[in-house]
Write a protein that binds this DNA or RNA. Sequence first.
DNA 1: CTCGGTTTGTTCTCGCGTTCACAAACTCCT
DNA 2: AGGAGTTTGTGAACGCGAGAACAAACCGAG
Lengths: 225, 225
Amino acid sequence: METRHAVTARTSPESARDIPEATVARLPIYLRALTTLSEQGTSTCSSEELAAAAGVNSAKLRKDLSYLGSYGTRGVGYDTDYLRYQIAREIGVTQDWPVVIVGIGNLGQALANYSGFRSRGFRVVALLDADPARHEEVVAGIDVRPFDHLEQIVRDHAVAIGVIATPALAAQDVADRMVACGITSILNFAPTVLNVPDQVDVRKVDLSIELQILAYHEQRKAASA
Amino acid sequence: METRHAVTARTSPESARDIPEATVARLPIYLRALTTLSEQGTSTCSSEELAAAAGVNSAKLRKDLSYLGSYGTRGVGYDTDYLRYQIAREIGVTQDWPVVIVGIGNLGQALANYSGFRSRGFRVVALLDADPARHEEVVAGIDVRPFDHLEQIVRDHAVAIGVIATPALAAQDVADRMVACGITSILNFAPTVLNVPDQVDVRKVDLSIELQILAYHEQRKAASA
DNA sequence: CTCGGTTTGTTCTCGCGTTCACAAACTCCT
DNA sequence: AGGAGTTTGTGAACGCGAGAACAAACCGAG
């Protein structure tokens, strides 16, 4: 949880209970667990059940949900679909978020094809790449377009979220251009530290860092054996 | 250095201090920043410089490094290459870790092709997929093999780390088989909660969860504007 | 050798997040 | 209606991590 959202004092009009960052990070997990339960025909679930499905402690789950309001019934539990809707609304995925993906290498293609986006409130409105050789291609039913089109696309579709799947060297440039176009949230897959203004949120997904963390623990296991 | 303890000289010769999880998660970032600095010809760097390159607070950086030992020189800073080696050794990436990737869809292919693995101490020794139609393919110079070969491959290459890039429905089965074969660290890209024994480490990378977290903050921004 | 300037390593404090434990609230059965 | 059995929501305790601040240690000049 290295995101530093807490610093930017985002004054909210009213009733803006500010939900702890750690809780926000878990809400999508609960959302997914609820969807699974619902598909299995479970119309009501207890905090124990839901916590088990989400892989967390039930006390933590209840405290997390308490930040949203009182959507449960004591002695009974939670209505699966009702709670699911409330969480989705709180996260903001009841509406559709247009997303731009920049960098159509292997990872960018994987992202473009990932069906989990569309089904969860995100719509890929454009794929951009700097390499002219790729502008002929169609990936996941979407034309790959020149990076220069970014500004127009952001304006036309009111894009607020950008995904960077370029090599590390290009990432900072892409981020700068995104910020200049008015994008305020960036999901960065490039293995580099991005420098952006405070009001822009950046989340980083780094494959090799995750593996290195596993390697550390693996080494400890081997050493103690 | 500090309290003259007569008792605690019992710990194992090197790296027995347990490093906080939050610090472990940042060590790979420092490692990458040091590599970048080194490539730029910087032979010595202060905690300020390194912290800036890694995108963290300098006090936090110094505290993190202090868990590893005293590898800096007061009044001077850190020797870039020396510190880099020490961190790499602590993480365990001075040795090579064999890795198996299961599920050769778009994401699996992207992972197989990701050069950042090999350059950081990881070697993909096998690509596995349950679909027989894929067993003809060669991805990133590696034959795609049947999932049944898992046990033999794990034994032959002493694999400890497995990567799951399958659909959500298959993930738990794959994890079970991995655990049964002796794999003790799993990197899971499937959008599902894995159930594994305590001694097995699991790290989860979930693309749509990251986007949902961004969406939440984006919604807050829009509401307060 | 000494002194001023610099940077590390560490101590201390504070705030956040996790977990426990329990009162409040609901259902169902008699 | 009342009591037994559940389950939620939350107050309180606790541990961990972040950041500020500072003493210790090092370099170089004179």
